[in-house]
Design a protein around this nucleic acid. Structure first.
Lengths: 205, 205
DNA sequence: AAAAAACTGCGTAATTTTACCCATGTATCG
DNA sequence: CGATACATGGGTAAAATTACGCAGTTTTTT
């Protein structure tokens, strides 16, 4: 259960990467470094757990954009942003984007470690959630167009008859789809299916 | 339905209050001023809607503490914080506390108005949402103990038989409760009931 | 204390959903 | 062209839900 936590250091400057990696290693963290956000995103496998420490200003995707992208992808990893020339509007944007903290250089080791630990304490749950969400999305993706249509109507509470009327097909056919849907989604009841739909954002709770 | 929106200006300096009030009045807002956060909190009646514009540094409760206090009390009013000597850590604390924005002096009118409007648009949604949630809670509150038990099991996907077995009562009886539950909750299908349950926080989506 | 309301429980019948089977036509892809 | 996936439709029987009615026991209200 206790998966290894890794600190992902993302900075375009080699000197900063190695300094941070050295420092965090001393504190006992398992560290990996990346020279750009895009490099990191490309190697993201969704299986890893830990905390990201990234510079705000970088060529390509910057730290704040990275944070937004991770949120958009519903990756549960917390992000601690570091800035050399940070100003208030940038800090506001960073936190609004969902960053765990925004730290100015020169970095205070204690402050950084504290931020990382705050992030790590939230990460495990979020990761588990995002993994199961990933699995859900895959299962939903296996539904055919028609099945997805029926799915949406089922979780809205329509009966097979009503769905058949709306799609102008036989209720029997709808029931065939329902069976397929329940199987593919691995839902043993409509109630579970509705919760899946909520998690998938296909209906608002 | 469309309630009057008010901008609540909170600043210990009279000159700032009047200047902001004057400026926002020109932009067509309905404005009220308070000379301290505690003054404002004392006069909060919970019926008002709008947006708070507060200075960060004030005698007594400061702007960030005010923001936290409002969050704690679950007041839906958005807060735009203004700071004369703002720094990055303060901005981080402000946004983490839930402030809509953190603006440095000298205040850019356009920026302030933009932040206020963002806040107001959130207020409206939150208000509508909290109202319908309120209604849901009331309806749920009308369920008897037994009905609430059955409710929880139904939205978890158990069948009447399964529920009867768990509660050690006849499946027929369970169905009686189901009818009552559907009526009281005003849900026309199990799917809708499950969504209600999610909104009520009785099940995790 | 009497009346009203609410909680709890069950039965029957009609409707709906599930669980198994199955077949046909179309489109797509190697 | 054959294999495969998709959309469509069906039958039957079991299981589940819904609708409607009824009754004893608590609790609340008047």
């Amino acid at each position: 259960m206790a998966q290894t936590q890794t600190i992902f250091i993302i900075d375009d400057q080699e000197s900063v990467r190695s300094a941070l990696a050295e420092m965090l290693s001393v504190f006992g963290y398992n560290v990996e470094t990346f020279e750009s956000a895009d490099d990191f995103l490309g190697k993201l496998d969704g299986e890893r757990s830990g905390c990201i420490v990234a510079d705000v200003r970088m060529p390509g995707t910057d730290g704040i954009e990275l944070t937004r992208e991770l949120a958009r992808r519903q990756v549960g990893l917390p992000v601690v942003l570091i800035s050399g020339h940070g100003d208030v509007p940038m800090a506001v944007a960073a936190i609004k984007a969902g960053a765990e903290d925004f730290i100015e250089k020169p970095v205070d080791d204690i402050q950084l470690v504290a931020a990382i630990n705050r992030g790590l304490s939230h990460t495990t749950e979020r990761l588990a959630q995002s993994q199961s969400l990933q699995s859900l999305k895959e299962r939903f993706g296996r539904l055919t167009r028609r099945e997805a249509e029926v799915f949406d109507l089922v979780v809205q509470g329509f009966t097979s008859q009503g769905i058949g009327a709306q799609l102008d097909i036989s209720p029997r056919t709808v029931e065939s789809y329902r069976v397929q849907i329940m199987e593919k989604m691995q839902a043993e009841s409509v109630a579970v299916l509705v919760r899946f739909a909520v998690r998938l954002g296909r209906i608002t709770p």
